[in-house]
Amino acid sequence: MLAVDSLTVSHGPVTALREVSFSAARGAITAVLGANGAGKTTLLRTVSGLHRAGAGSITLDGRPIDRLPAESMVALGLAHVPEGRGVITELSVEENLRLGGLGRGRVRPGDLDLAYDLFGVLAERRNQLAGTLSGGERQMLVIGRALMARPEILLLDEPSLGLAPRVVAQIFALLRRLVVDQGLSVLLVEQNAISALSVADRGVVLHLGRVVADEEASRLAADDQLRHAYLGF
């Protein structure tokens, strides 16, 4: 279980998260929702060690991880797919995927099939520079690359950004499948609350850096007041 306790994070004078506490259970999808600037990205970046918390703690199965450097997270089974599609544009599709696998040790020739089986289009483009991919293909590449490390917990920052609803539905269906079949845990940051709640088990709503709701996804989706106030649907 990934647990965040009384986390306070600042960017210089701007306090982006205030005393945020919640936990993401194993084998479940936990959605973190909220408007622009609510602090969602800051939360993920702090969990994966790219940013340091001012106060509070982050634990993985009870073990504190908030002092560890970002580069050691993959080895702990944590994979972070950053906001804005973090493909390395100067590397080929295949090199991006290989790099993902290296996070967990060696990459054997057949290992890449893991990603190619999930996203057939990547196999067709394997030798192309990642910078030539379309937005949707890039999203598939970063998710495939994260899965190459065989993570136990996947941190996803707005995977639906700029994608057609059909592609979003496919990606969310894939997440669900990985959770059910392989016991993957997902911490899913989204603005697209309707889609996210339809696939998530639990929902955490951030508003101006504070947790204003932490409930089962279905109950959140049914709470009219909360929806209108914070989720805009």
């Binding site: 580069e71 993959v74 973090g86 493909v87 390395i88 590397l91 090199e95 790099l99 490390a149």
Partner: peptide, 24 residues
């Protein structure tokens, strides 16, 4: 080589490289 791939990743995009476990 794997090392060469890590070095290129670190040069092109240090932050993403770190998230993938590269010691930049």
């Amino acid at each position: 080589t794997d090392l060469g791939l890590r070095m290129r990743a670190a040069a092109f995009n240090p932050e993403v490289a770190r998230l993938l476990g590269v010691r930049v």
